[in-house]
Simulated assay, not measured.
Amino acid sequence: MVIRNVYKVEVDSGVESVLLPFKTTVSLTEEVTVMWRNNSGMMVDCNYFKELQLRQYKGRTEMKENYKSRDFSLTLKNPTDRDRGIYTCTVYRKEKILAEKQVLLNVKADSPIIAIDFGSGYSGYAFNLKPREEGGETQLKRWGKEVGLDSPKTPTCILFDEDKQFLEFGYKAKTAYSNMTEEEAEKHYFFEDFKRNILFMEGHSVYMEITLLSLDIEFCIKESLEHFPDVLNMGLFIRRENQNVININKDADIE
């Protein structure tokens, strides 16, 4: 049986319930079986065989059983983005299909947004956990508490140990390096103001600078993701101070 039309339903995540409509013009009696299945073919609800209902739908569905009006619409409670997909309602008697309809459900998740400003001198980021909610507030990461400051940005600098492993970024990197003895400092790698130098370099130096750039961006991303431990879908927007396209080579050596 070929189904040409798919009815589309779209709701926001967090709503109390969503209705997946199904009505047919076919005359029906209580002898028919009406079954809703998800796009994996698993049973969501049915007028019989309740014991076969998929676990994730237990206690969350309510199907109309109005044989007179031929209405077998399904109410799904507390829909989430996990419930997205095509739902098929099939009416059959014995092995003969009498009517069938598909409904495409889209549950819009409130994906958070992170904005990273990576500058030549200073960098920072801001985030909004629920951008589509009224009153959803954008929060700005504050830096410099370890040095008695409260700044919306931190210096674009990075510190590595003698094995070229990442140690610190921003104020922490600058403070740690400044507090080192001359002997200790010689065993570490400290870089700052390197972003602005990329356009004037050639050869291997470019790869080194771009590697530092990528590591700094990676640090900001990882730092900001700590605010989203349970988020699966996220929009990430990176603003650069110039319009140059940079291909990041993370395997370049730091020398």
Rank of each mutant, 00 (worst) to 15 (best):
F127W: 08
Y125V: 01
R93N: 14
T88L: 15
A99H: 15
Y92P: 05
Y87C: 14
G135T: 08
S120G: 02
R132C: 05
A126S: 11
G121I: 02
N128F: 03
P112R: 04
D117S: 03
E95L: 15
N106F: 07
S123V: 01
L98W: 08
I116V: 09
F118H: 05
G124F: 00
G119Y: 00
Y87W: 15
L129W: 05
R93P: 11
A126N: 11
G121W: 01
K108T: 03
E137D: 09
I114A: 06
Y122Q: 00
K101I: 06
V107L: 06
G135C: 10
L105A: 09
I114N: 10
L105H: 14
I114D: 08
Y125L: 00
V103Q: 09
G136W: 06
Y92F: 13
Y122W: 01
E134G: 10
E134Y: 10
K94I: 11
S111W: 02
E95T: 14
G124H: 00
A99W: 13
K101H: 12
V91T: 09
Y122L: 01
K94V: 12
P112L: 05
K108I: 07
R132Q: 10
L98D: 07
G121Y: 05
G136F: 07
D110K: 04
E133R: 09
K96I: 14
F118W: 04
E137T: 07
G135H: 12
S123W: 01
F127K: 05
E95D: 15
P131G: 02
E95I: 15
A109C: 01
I97N: 10
G136V: 06
S123Q: 01
Y87K: 15
F127R: 06
L104I: 07
V103W: 14
L129F: 03
D110H: 02
S120C: 02
T90D: 08
A115R: 02
T88I: 13
A99F: 15
A115D: 04
P131Q: 03
E100Y: 14
L105F: 12
E100H: 13
S123N: 03
I97T: 15
I116R: 04
S111P: 01
T138V: 08
A126R: 12
K94S: 11
K130A: 08
I97C: 13
G135S: 11
F127N: 02
E100L: 14
I114K: 10
G135N: 11
S120Q: 02
V91A: 11
G121E: 04
A126D: 08
G119E: 00
A115E: 02
T138E: 13
E133W: 07
K130R: 13
G136P: 07
Q102I: 04
S111R: 07
K130F: 14
S120M: 00
A109E: 03
Y125K: 01
G136L: 04
L105Y: 14
E134N: 11
T90S: 09
R132N: 09
T90M: 12
R93Y: 15
Y122R: 02
C89N: 13
A99V: 13
A126G: 11
V107A: 11
G136S: 06
G119Q: 00
C89H: 14
E137H: 08
I113W: 01
Q102C: 10
I114E: 09
T138Q: 12
K130L: 10
N106T: 09
K108G: 03
N106D: 08
S123H: 03
G124C: 01
D110E: 03
P131R: 06
K101G: 10
